[in-house]
């Protein structure tokens, strides 16, 4: 389950007490099951209270847990016959983005996902899930292949952002991200994007232009990380907690803003508490989305995606001081 966070400590303590009590009962052969039941009920209430009212910052910290399931954890639980495909055919293979083909409930799909490590060693290999240009270009290559063979595309977003490195700039990371936005908008197959952990900036968006955007309850998605926002806005990265609130980055915030289509619930305490059950919940959401999108013709798939992005924005005209958006994205999205 990984190290508990500070706000989870009371739960941990209570769990400890329950374990102690059980041990005591076994050793002394005394029946204290009334007391045990009472404690177990309290644990359920406490967990619901703690995990049901998490602040945006607490969700960010859940999203960053090393034990949180990653793209490669979900793939075998959701798909069969996964064949991984490497390389962008231009420069190299980026381990921070994985991709390939597989079957989903028997139907062919293309899968692309950002991949962070599950421990330090793996994180170094995966560059902490921060892609280089070759990662975006590999993703684009696989998306074009999916388009050719009329396979739906499912992407998993999980990144702290594009990698701020010298080589990434030299190899044109701006162009690589821009090119993906440009090309993804025009694909003729359904694209479903699922934010499974962190989603920051162009690094997330580069595999995030879809017909439907789904988000796990404890994931976050924004123009920049809370630390980055705090540093830029207030010259103080320590104000990340405040930024997490102000920047409106959680799944429910984005649902309210009309940016995402579906908020996927998580198992109590976060996906890492029961990855298998979490995969089931994601599976249901994906089946629902694919069923909806399969009703559209190829032309409609493209049109729906273009219309979705065309409508995002919030603005007014000086003359009409109505404080209403001239082109309300929320009503357009219905």
């Amino acid at each position: 389950m990984g190290p508990e966070l500070d706000f989870e400590k009371p739960i941990l303590e209570l769990k400890g007490k329950i374990a102690e009590l059980k041990q005591f009962m076994d050793e002394k052969n005394i029946d204290l099951s009334d007391e045990l039941n009472r404690l177990q009920e309290r644990l359920i209430t406490l967990e619901k209270e703690t995990y049901g009212n998490m602040t945006p910052w607490e969700r960010v910290r859940i999203a960053r847990k090393l034990t949180r399931p990653t793209t490669l954890d979900y793939i075998p639980m959701l798909f069969s016959d996964f064949v991984e495909c490497h390389g962008d055919r231009l420069y190299g293979d980026d381990p921070a983005i994985v991709g390939g083909i597989a079957k989903f409930h028997g139907h062919p799909v293309t899968i692309i996902g950002e991949q962070r490590g599950r421990d330090t060693k793996e994180n170094i290999m995966r560059n902490f899930g921060s892609p280089h240009p070759e990662g975006y270009r590999k993703a684009l290559r696989l998306m074009k292949q999916a388009d050719k063979f009329h396979r739906p595309i499912i992407t998993f977003i999980d990144t702290k952002g594009a990698f701020p490195g010298k080589a990434a700039e030299e190899r044109g990371q701006s162009e690589a991200i821009a090119r993906n936005l440009f090309e993804m908008s025009w694909l003729s197959v359904p694209v479903i994007c699922v934010v499974i952990g962190e989603g920051a900036s162009g690094g997330a968006l580069a595999i995030g232009v879809g017909n439907q955007i789904l988000m796990l309850e404890n994931s976050w998605y924004s123009v920049i990380s809370p630390e980055g926002a705090a540093a830029l806005l207030w010259k103080d990265a320590g104000k990340a907690e405040e930024a997490a609130r102000t920047m409106k980055i959680t799944g429910s915030d984005l649902k309210n803003l009309g940016i995402i289509d579906k908020l996927i619930p998580e198992v109590l305490g976060g996906a890492h508490h029961n990855p298998k059950e979490q995969a089931n919940i994601i599976d249901h959401a994906l089946v629902e989305s694919l069923t909806e999108l399969s009703q559209l013709t190829t032309e409609q798939v493209r049109e729906q995606r273009l219309a979705k992005y065309r409508a995002i924005g919030n603005y007014d005209r000086i003359q009409e001081k109505t404080n209403q958006s001239a082109f309300s994205y929320s009503s357009e999205r219905q």
Partner: peptide, 26 residues
């Protein structure tokens, strides 16, 4: 770059403008 004060809406303008250019290019 993107305007921080409009958060994810600013991020989505990147997709919106790029998508418009793709249609224009096509």
């Amino acid at each position: 770059g993107a305007r921080m004060q409009e958060g994810v809406l600013s991020l989505m303008q990147m997709a919106k403008t790029s998508a418009a250019l793709k249609g224009f290019s096509e």
